[in-house]
Simulated assay, not measured.
Amino acid sequence: MSTRVGPLDVEALRSRLDRATAAAAVAGVDALLISPGSDLRYLIGAGGASFERLTCLVVPVGGDPVLVVPKLEQPGYAAVPTEALGVEVATWVDGEDPYALVRKALKGTARTAVADMTPALHVLGLRGAVGGEQVLAGPILRELRMRKDAAEVAALRKAGEAIDRVHARVGEWLRAGRTEAEVGADIAAAIVAEGHEAAEFVIVGSGPNGASPHHSLSDRVIEVGDVVVVDIGGPVAEGYNSDSTRTYSIGEPRDADVRETYAVLQAAQQAAVDAARPGVTCEAVDAAAREVIDAAGFGEHFVHRTGHGIGLDVHEEPYIVAGNDLPLEAGMAFSVEPGIYLPGRWGARIEDIVIATGSGSERLNNRPHELVVLEA
């Protein structure tokens, strides 16, 4: 269980709780029911973990928040300044009914919003105890979470710099004769060594495996001439994540079309970054990348959205995808990561985290965007 509060002070956390309460009222719900996870960490500084025993932060519109937590797990929240935040702690022990504590904290409500990733075990338990209508809390909290404040931007910038240092070292491990899994293990260790709390994910997609966007690792032996997609990231101490992709070649690419195709991808990624600024819609940023790739005849080989928001979760709002007409605002952080994937042959992706600023955007990843050719 994470007990880290990070750099946020009590005033910042209190502001988040107040804004969440106000947002709930505007959304027409009587209370938020927040289970362990990134929403809980956003509101009180510690995310905890979900088990069969209920932990739930009750945030009523008309009263003070209450953290319902098993007594045996209460020490895991010792770093949370509950008293200063005005959060009452209600503990329970095995054999007692935790859902009754939630009902008591609500003092009678008709409509509650439950955290999106709450286990079904607890959703149904809460529904039976509380009654009334339940809706998702995600649409309420994402309005707060996708607009990063200065401390959050600083944490994301720190994460971006840390993952850039890892990409700068990939040539130490990525070479012919090694398996993807062997390379991935070295990269995972470096992610921690360069300033992350953990390696959240490591993708090393070599040769034909690079044509699968979410390929992870395998026992495939990397060969001379392979194009290799390396997509890596993880959280720093403050809980905010990095996520960056670069594409490598082991010596000169085996396939004659790699460099020309990669140039298309590089132009598409730059076009999307250039388009990303306040007032431009998420779908317009997606279109900026897609138009370049479509025009070059690779449209069918760009099989995913251009990007996703990032923060306490690797994937969160806003999503840079067709159909999302949300205008970008200063403080929104998201990936820009078009890819071209040629099944059975090779694939490539370029990914940076970008933050919309007052007048444009800032890349948080600054490693070269060209195809990185390593010694064979």
Rank of each mutant, 00 (worst) to 15 (best):
P98M: 12
A181P: 00
G171D: 12
A105E: 05
P98I: 10
A129D: 08
A155W: 00
V170E: 04
E96Y: 10
G132D: 02
R175V: 13
G160W: 05
G160E: 09
V153L: 15
E161N: 10
E152V: 03
A185C: 05
R178S: 12
G160P: 06
E161A: 15
Q134I: 00
A105H: 01
T118V: 06
V130P: 00
K107M: 03
L126R: 02
A154C: 03
G128H: 11
V192R: 12
D186V: 01
A113F: 05
P139S: 05
D97P: 09
A113G: 05
M117Q: 13
A137G: 04
T118H: 00
V170T: 09
G177M: 06
W92P: 04
A181K: 11
V114P: 00
W92M: 10
L106Q: 02
L141T: 00
A181D: 11
R142E: 14
T109Q: 07
R147Y: 11
A155S: 14
A188Y: 02
E180S: 14
E133T: 14
L101K: 12
V192G: 06
R111E: 08
R157W: 09
P98D: 11
E172S: 12
E152S: 11
A168Y: 06
A137Q: 02
E152D: 11
D97N: 15
V166I: 10
R165A: 15
E133S: 09
W173T: 10
A110F: 03
V114F: 00
E161M: 12
D97Q: 13
D164Y: 10
V166Y: 05
D186H: 13
E182G: 09
A155M: 05
T109V: 15
V130C: 04
